[in-house]
Amino acid sequence: MDNSKKKLSLGQKQSLAGWAFLTPAVLFIAVMSFLPMIQALFLSFQSGKGANLSWTGVTNYVRMFQDPVFMQALKNNFIYLIIQVPIMLILALILASLLNNKDLRFKGLFRTAIFLPCATSLVSYAVIFRSLFAVDGLINIVLIKLGFLSTGYNFLGHPNSARIVIILALIWRWTGYNMVFYLSGLQNIEYSIYESAKIDGASPIQSFWGITVPLLKPTILLTAIMSTNGTLQLFDESVNLTYGGPSNATITMSHYIYNVSFKYVPNFGYAAAMSYLILFLVAVLAFLQMKVGDKRD
């Protein structure tokens, strides 16, 4: 009797210790993420300049779908998402499965080199790519020397080429990052599976689709959700690589929201409404990806 009472209090004591351990982190997330989220929701139904806000109902939500710049930004985010994320993830998968091959040497060297871009800051690599693709930049010099161009092409001055530069930069910066996740995931797969598949006559491409992809599915899902989330929130690249230009042709949603909040005459209510669309898109896409991820079993 006495003994069980003591045990119960020990368990309670431990449970309390657990709550004490997790409370600071939970409080910070509540105050720094959830509370502002709710405040932003209220803001999104108000409009006005600076601090003079008045309730306007859903006006902001209607307005953003008639705002050509925001529609362009939305389109741009989706262009980056649809083109860049699949290319990057497939490339990362191929690199990871090559580096998982026991027959190859210098794997550490390759892995380090391919991961290195992740150590550069977003602003830095945006500036590097901006300089490389400038009219007098190295890419143009090489293209002229090779005879493809007679004068420097203004890559960042044309909408489509500017978008391609952003996509190339994103692939350069993030492929190694995703590759590390896949390499870690591959370590949990018994290498003997590959060897027995080989004995059964499977080609490397067959074992890639038949073994690697299905067994890595949870990791692929994780990276897909992370990249989707990241792409929908692109900011630094748009600000520092293309300045959103030429004339807002490459601007992203986060960049435009920043401009509406802090660069132009501030309209916090309208900015909050646009940011809720990002939240909505992130949530819907994450949900869809999880559904699709479940189905393929």
Partner: peptide, 29 residues
């Protein structure tokens, strides 16, 4: 280490914060 139903539920709520885009909370913050 001290997981129980209540704590697991708190954890799953916290994970939702991963989806919060920074642009959305930037102004209230």
């Amino acid at each position: 280490i001290f997981h129980d139903k209540a704590k697991d539920r708190v954890m799953s709520i916290i994970l939702l914060a991963m989806m919060v885009p920074f642009a959305a909370i930037m102004i209230p913050l």
